[in-house]
Design a binder for these strands. Structure first.
Length: 569
RNA sequence: GAUCUCGUAGCUCAGCUGGUUAGAGCAUCUCACUUUUAAUGAGAGGGUCCUGGGUUCGAGUCCCAGCGGGAUCACCA
């Protein structure tokens, strides 16, 4: 294994700690009395404290040193004085262990007494120092100067996402984003629980991927020998629970869609879906206004949030615009009364590409998506979607051809989608059948018919309103992030390829003498496959050349030697 | 999937129209230093210039292919 100089030094420090009888990875719990931020907030001098965390920096000045200890809350300054830490003759804990054998990134526990330095910095004078875990790889050396400017920032997105653990250690704002994410989810959960709604779990593996229009991931169940789909939505299951008599159910659902990835899409993402009986989409709009205002206020202490240079105001009520008016306003096209041909002509007149698989719903969707969506920066409910693009939504109470649906747009992006749920089983069956026709026309995202769901509706579902909130996007909106990868701890990445290194055992098994195997690998033939990729004569020539160049104390190889390995390979 | 763009030390980055032994700051190592805070001062080590081809007397630099990332687009929430 290739180690950098810094890694080799840390490993030798590790061995030296062990040699001195200091366990670098002790098993025992370390008793902690305080943590950094709460200690700073209620600071008093002369208090005995015990903290644990990572050493994030050291400023060594001979017989005294300062260090930054980073724990789960933040950082706190340590002051280590040689003669305080080591009051007896033996000064090795300070001189050797702290100054030489410990590094930035190591976990330690300290016991000591709080005090203020001459410059007024809250500090702990360390009386006891315990090694808790040695770090063998150096952390990126991020520094912040007195103006708050960050130097040598760890910013490479690939490294940050692949090694989120490092990102979290050195970039406090990243930790803050994920704490905010947790606060968003917790606030929603507390709000819903207080209203008596039930948090439920429904299947992730589904035989029919329903509830949304998207391409699913397919897997296979061996015992049943059937294909199963990772859920693209949980909507149909939650509605079954409303049929079953629960009056309010919600689920934070990890959904999976086998589609593109970009700064607003990840193959797996989180939607909070809520269904409440005896309500409609008008009620749901008010409910969402109150919820988002509460979440924003919990995070920021205000309803006004900065996002990508805009101030987003979550103060209720939010603006409401019908889909028809939105399209009329931004394109001059009145979709009311237009048939499929008319819509297609309107799209093409605006430079929107269409194809034969697109029905009325899809065409309206294109008009809105291309020409309107990005205009809605402030929270806005877009309401009353055409029936063709909403197969699970109840027909509008007074506008024929439309449904009782809204989407909440923030910063030009859809954050929530809600309906007065379709509970007429006959209408629902017809909607599914028209989806089937779309599928026959080539729309590979048209919904499957879920016969069991239809049966459930036939038993009767009360009037219900449902909503799905894109949690990842909502967190983006509330934490001023423009990439979904910044709000997912482990965003999807192409799998990393690790250098496997030479397989000496396999080389020897193929007949390569043990004394030759490392040299064969060093010459570039690391695996049996590598051996098989070249003619014996060529291999012999290269290896003997390598032997001569590196003055190996080994007999030259004969063609027979090499041929015998190849036969075994 | 398409287009553009990037890949140089542990980290952040220079490296000109191709030209000696590839540089800087931080980090690391050695020494000094008892209230510092981007600690300081002196010295030292550290490189598969992403990989593989090609052009050339000569490639980190130019060309081709590949791998990986980012951005834009398509699909989508």
């Amino acid at each position: 294994m290739h180690l950098t100089e810094q890694e080799r030094i840390r490993r030798s420090s590790l061995q030296e700690l062990k040699r001195r009888g200091i366990e670098p990875y002790p098993a025992a719990a370390y008793p902690v009395t305080h943590r950094s931020r709460s200690l700073a907030d209620a600071f008093e001098e002369g208090v005995e404290v015990s903290l644990a965390g990572r050493i994030m920096s050291r400023r060594i000045m001979g017989k005294a040193s300062f260090a930054e200890l980073q724990d789960g809350e933040g950082t706190f300054q340590l002051y280590l004085n040689r003669d305080v830490l080591c009051p007896d003759e033996d000064k090795s804990l300070y001189n050797d262990v702290f100054k030489k054998l410990l590094d930035r990134g190591d976990f330690v526990g300290v016991k000591g007494v709080t005090f203020l330095t001459q410059t007024g910095e809250q500090s702990i004078e360390v009386r006891e120092l315990t090694v808790l875990a040695k770090s063998l790889k150096p952390l990126p050396a991020v520094k912040v100067d007195e103006d708050g400017k960050v130097h040598d920032a760890f910013t490479d997105p690939e490294l940050r996402y692949r090694m989120r653990y490092v990102d979290l250690v050195v970039n406090p704002q990243v930790r803050a984003t994920f704490e905010a994410r947790s606060t968003v989810i917790r606030t929603i959960r507390e709000t819903f629980d207080a209203k008596g709604w039930l948090e439920v779990d429904t299947p992730v593996l589904q035989a029919i991927p329903g509830g949304a229009a998207a391409r699913p991931f397919i897997t296979h169940h061996n015992a049943l020998d059937i294909p199963l789909y990772l859920r693209i939505a949980n909507e149909l299951y939650l509605k079954r629970l409303i049929v079953g008599g629960f009056e309010g159910v919600y689920e934070f659902s990890r959904n999976f869609r086998n589609e593109g990835m970009d700064r607003t899409h990840n193959p797996e993402f989180t939607v909070m879906e809520l269904y409440v009986a005896y309500k409609d989409y008008l009620w749901m709009m008010e409910e969402m206004e109150q919820l988002l205002a509460k979440v924003a206020h919990r995070l920021h202490g205000t309803h006004k949030v900065t996002l990508a240079g805009n101030e987003i105001d979550f103060t209720p009520p939010f603006r409401r615009v019908t889909m028809r008016d939105a399209i009329l306003e931004h394109t001059g096209v009145d979709i009311d009364g237009l048939d499929e041909a008319g819509l297609r002509a309107a799209c093409e007149g605006l430079g929107i590409e269409t194809d034969a698989s697109m029905g009325k719903g899809k065409l309206v969707d294109e008009l809105f998506g291309e020409k309107c969506e990005h205009h809605y920066i402030q929270p806005t409910f877009i309401t009353d979607y055409p029936v063709e693009m909403s197969p699970l939504t109840k027909a509008h109470r007074s506008k024929p051809g439309y449904t009782e649906r809204f989407e909440l747009m923030i910063n030009g992006t859809e954050v929530a989608n809600a309906y007065s749920e379709l509970n007429d089983p006959i209408d629902q069956r017809e909607r599914f059948e028209s989806q089937l026709k779309l599928a026959e026309r080539g729309d590979d995202e048209a919904m499957f018919i879920d016969q069991d769901f239809l049966r459930a509706l036939e038993y009767g579902m009360p009037p219900t309103s449902g909503v799905g909130i894109g949690i990842d996007r909502l967190v983006m909106m509330l934490t001023n992030q423009t990439s979904i990868q910044e709000v997912l701890l482990f965003p999807q990445m192409r799998p990393e390829v690790f250098a496997t290194g030479p397989d000496l055992g396999a080389l020897e098994a193929a007949g390569v003498p043990a004394e030759w195997a490392p040299h064969v690998a060093a010459a570039g033939f690391e695996t049996v496959e590598d051996l098989a990729s070249i003619k014996p004569a060529g291999l012999r020539e290269k290896l003997n050349g390598f032997r001569k160049k590196n003055k190996l104390d080994l007999p030259a190889l004969s063609l027979e030697d090499v041929e015998s390995w190849m036969t075994n390979a």
